[in-house]
Amino acid sequence: MTEMVVAARASAPAAGRWGAAPPQELLERLKDYGQEGAFAFWDELGPEERDHLIRDIESLDLPRIDRIIRCSLRSQGAPVPTVEPVPESSVSTVDDRTPEDKERWWRRGLRAISEGKLAVVLLAGGQGTRLGSSDPKGCFSIGLPSRKSLFQLQAERILCIQKLAAQCTDAPGSTVQIHWYIMTSPFTDEATRKFFETHRYFGLEPNQVTFFQQGTIPCVSPDGRFIMETPYKVAKAPDGNGGVYAALKSKRLLDDMASKGVKYVDCYGVDNVLVRVADPTFLGYFIDRGVSAAAKVVRKAYPQEKVGVFVQRGRGGPLSVVEYSEMDAAMTTEINQTTGRLRYCWSNVCLHMFTLDFLNQVTNSLEKDSM
């Protein structure tokens, strides 16, 4: 995206209630963050446009945005911090487990689902631009004979798990309901809601589906300056999958989950046709391990595959993800001499499991950082 340049009008508009200059206090705030360029076209704006620009800027959390921009600029061209491969003890390969283990996890997961302890969060804020569509990704049909969309495939998986979990209850004929929280963006929210309404929620009950919008952040130039969509509007984009934490907090959805008795949250991305939504085996394993967060991983197919990989930050440090664009050739191709596999081989495919307590801790820490 490039900055927009607009030709000056032939005659200057009336000053309006803001006068000939922008509000001094707001201008000084923007100068503190190096963003006074947002007022570059003030003299060419009409009264209503000036009002729109003022409201637009006042709606921005400037301290938070500045921290994000500075962090991003610092990371550009910076070497990857010292990392280690994920310890083998941190990865459990399902195929290597005994049938008894897998059966135990499956049943434990189904039991937790039957007790209403699992909620599902879908990250569905993106448009299918790279698929040649401006519709939400979840509306996309991948060419199956059934012509089912991604949303329908995932809804039907939830319906299937609900039926299986109902068989684990002590009351014959009882029903199980998994609540599905779907994160949209300002660009996909209306279309997503209409798609579900048109398709009658694919057999799910409307009250078990909650839509919520992720936030947006300003688009910035390579030097960190706001890009203007128009002379009176800052260009904005969805704040990415990581925006789910702030969105869950601001919409009080974690409180909603707690009121429903939810203890665990399955979180995944919409553009995975093979996703096992609300996977009982994954949930059972997660509960069995007693951890706060876990992720499904897939072994990289080849060194140059464009996927981020899980790493350990320093010896004994926390696990995190290094994006493929951050990995140099040596790191990408390095071989573990013991296993014969790539040393950094466990790719992030956006399939996560969290405890509700963990999500509350993360969102509370974000809230403190923004104060």
Rank of each mutant, 00 (worst) to 15 (best):
C267S: 07
I142G: 08
G215Y: 00
P231L: 11
V86I: 12
T333G: 05
N348G: 06
V244H: 01
M331S: 03
V5S: 10
D43K: 05
A278M: 08
P63M: 02
F226Y: 04
R130Y: 15
D255T: 08
V209Q: 01
G37I: 06
S174I: 05
G125N: 02
P13S: 04
Q208F: 06
I65H: 00
Q208K: 12
R276M: 09
T82S: 08
G240Q: 04
Y245H: 13
S75V: 02
D223R: 14
Q208P: 13
A247L: 08
K368N: 10
T169D: 15
C219E: 10
Q213F: 03
V322D: 00
Y181A: 01
D135Y: 06
S185D: 12
D135M: 09
K368P: 04
A329R: 09
W105E: 02
V234T: 03
D32P: 04
D369S: 14
F151W: 01
L123Y: 05
Q304P: 11
P13Q: 02
S92M: 15
F354Y: 15
C345K: 02
M228Q: 03
H352L: 14
A38I: 02
K233L: 11
G77Y: 03
R55Q: 13
D43Q: 09
G132I: 01
P79H: 00
A124V: 01
